[in-house]
Design a binder for these strands. Structure first.
Lengths: 141, 141
DNA sequence: GTCTGCCTCGTACTTAAGTATGATTTTAAT
DNA sequence: ATTAAAATCATACTTAAGTACGAGGCAGAC
């Protein structure tokens, strides 16, 4: 954001300098003022398009990263606990129950218990459905 | 897209007209040419920002709806066949192998064969991974 | 014709997933 | 201190998923 603004400022300054150098004293008397204005208009329009695009992009790119403190309202509604959610996340990444157990330093049976409760809370039968459902509800990215 | 370009053209025309009306004959002798240029630069920069933002937004919004005739290039690269892709789609929707078999009017064992080949082509071990991978590759929405 | 790739199906097996039940421990709230 | 929810683990079981063959049919390429 600040970088874009800075760059825009730089671009502006550069353009101004160029304009000064190519000054009207050499041009305006040869070409008409209209042409001169058209050139300026074009340059600044281009600069504006560039700056506008940059700004929009910055905000657009930030969203996917930021809109996840997750939908904690829906999370509460479902009654999913902290641990169950962690299991859900790893599940969504395609890990097996055993892998999840290893990552969370608990036993396989613990994970199975969590998944069973999780499925019941999400009202699904299989892990693939659970992942799909969780994404629908914006519980996971 | 065309609408934005049209609007931009209109904006340009309007600005040009305004400039003509407020013509230098009335202004340039009072204010310096630099100030006049600054005004023009500002106006066109603003116009550019607006147009640029519009254009970006249009393309960004179009993407989620349109970017699906699916990425057929990557599909070919993986060597996934038509039938395998159908299985993949249903799999991603959370269906079991039996459900997929019913929907496609083939036997369970056929689906198992497809999934096995599919996993090998996607270089994964489990269906949850397959779905994740396929989404990464933009093979499915 | 022959070959190749795809789709189909079956059987047999191994492994993972999911369910049910019960129990202990931790943690936080009252 | 009591209670309740969450987290942990185990055992036993059922079902689904995944693997490894083999094999027949079928369409298009050579």
């Amino acid at each position: 954001m600040r970088k874009t603004i800075l760059l825009y400022g730089l671009g502006l300054a550069t353009l101004a300098t160029v304009l000064k150098l190519v000054e009207y004293r050499y041009f305006v008397r040869d070409l008409s003022l209209e042409v001169y204005l058209a050139v300026i208009a074009s340059l600044f329009t281009a600069l504006g398009v560039w700056a506008g695009a940059k700004l929009i992009k910055k905000t657009k790119i930030q969203q996917p990263g930021v809109d996840f403190a997750i939908d904690s309202k829906k999370l509460e509604e479902t009654g999913i606990s902290t641990r169950e959610y962690e299991v859900l996340e790893l599940m969504a990444q395609g890990h097996s129950n055993q892998e999840i157990a290893d990552k969370l330093f608990v036993s396989l049976s613990t994970i199975k218990t969590h998944t069973t409760n999780l499925f019941s809370k999400l009202d699904v039968k299989r892990r693939t459905q659970a992942v799909q459902r969780a994404k629908e509800l914006n519980l996971i990215p």
